[in-house]
Design a protein around this nucleic acid. Sequence first.
DNA 1: GTCTATACAACGATAGAC
DNA 2: GTCTATCGTTGTATAGAC
Lengths: 204, 204
Amino acid sequence: MTSSVGPGPGRRRGRRPGGTDTRGQLLDAARVEFAEWGYEKATVRKIAERAGVDAAMVNHWFGGKEALFTASLDIPVDPTEILATILPGDPEHLGERVVEMFLTVWDATGGGPLAAMVHSIASHEEAARMMREFIVNVLVGRIVEAVAPDQHDLRAGLCGSQVFGMGMVRYVLKLEPMASADHATLVAAVAPTIQRYLTAPLTT
Amino acid sequence: MTSSVGPGPGRRRGRRPGGTDTRGQLLDAARVEFAEWGYEKATVRKIAERAGVDAAMVNHWFGGKEALFTASLDIPVDPTEILATILPGDPEHLGERVVEMFLTVWDATGGGPLAAMVHSIASHEEAARMMREFIVNVLVGRIVEAVAPDQHDLRAGLCGSQVFGMGMVRYVLKLEPMASADHATLVAAVAPTIQRYLTAPLTT
DNA sequence: GTCTATACAACGATAGAC
DNA sequence: GTCTATCGTTGTATAGAC
């Protein structure tokens, strides 16, 4: 599109005229592309093209494809930061750290975002796919790969099912005593399950 | 609304004129009453009164308050029948029977009703309460009472969280490999969790 | 001049075609 | 096995804002 105007002395470089919301345009473009293609098949280049900016802007504004994906999902926490918090340490007690972390994050938000997320998942096939890919590619996948000996995908799904179910019962269904239980009680009850899904043999 | 027409000669007895949908009216009335009062505080008499029929109709059409409740929730299976199927037998393997049963039921319906249920739970506070009471009073409560040594409510919540989470991941989120796994694989993975929630000590 | 947002080029990795 | 295309990412130069 720079054919007629583009002068001879090299292509246009450097900062574009002010006023453009590159970050916002990238977010909008990312939502469209991720929704249409899914996480893996969507490309940073295509998203940048749709946004009308250079692909390097994804790195500059978000740090990478994964961070752009999570940002486009409006998830209020930074998965990378959380992973950095819970991954280091004794793998034998990783289950406890996982459960404790989710409880802390969800307690802070009161479960509203969780309910909204569940709502959109149950409503739109597209939201289910994006959430599915978020779990696989970003959140649980990393934890599983760090400690699980095999069957990474199955273990990730099992961990996700228990954590997600716990969140639903505690924050959305508000079923007592889990809704009011302190963290220690829930960690003691649920963490061994997560730990087993992460590291124990799963075959019959 | 029968004021002007209604005659005087004693109360009307015996079979009413045909054409009225007593069962459907009871269902509608039950949904309103259960939603407003909750399972325990709602009364069969009040439901029948709202439906404009005799309380005996609840027993005639549904078999009791609990069955009317489950019918009003549009749950496609009969909890009593299911409980009768899985409760007898070795308590040490009850977890396996529970997981196998849920998989069989949900496989038959393909997860559509589960998604619809989740949708309404996440949307309406009222639906969450009804589901909560369904779990406590009808479904998991019976199982827990049959085998759990203590902390019945906590154990019921934990079992519910894992079963519900498994259903979400398999049928709504459709996360592989859990979405396509056979029953044996999922039972081997999840049943020990249920078994532990049912019978093992839960304290630290 | 300094800082920042941007464009362009190139690198290593990977998947598919032949 | 090799070749090619494409991906995500990184480095660097440049233009505009302050």
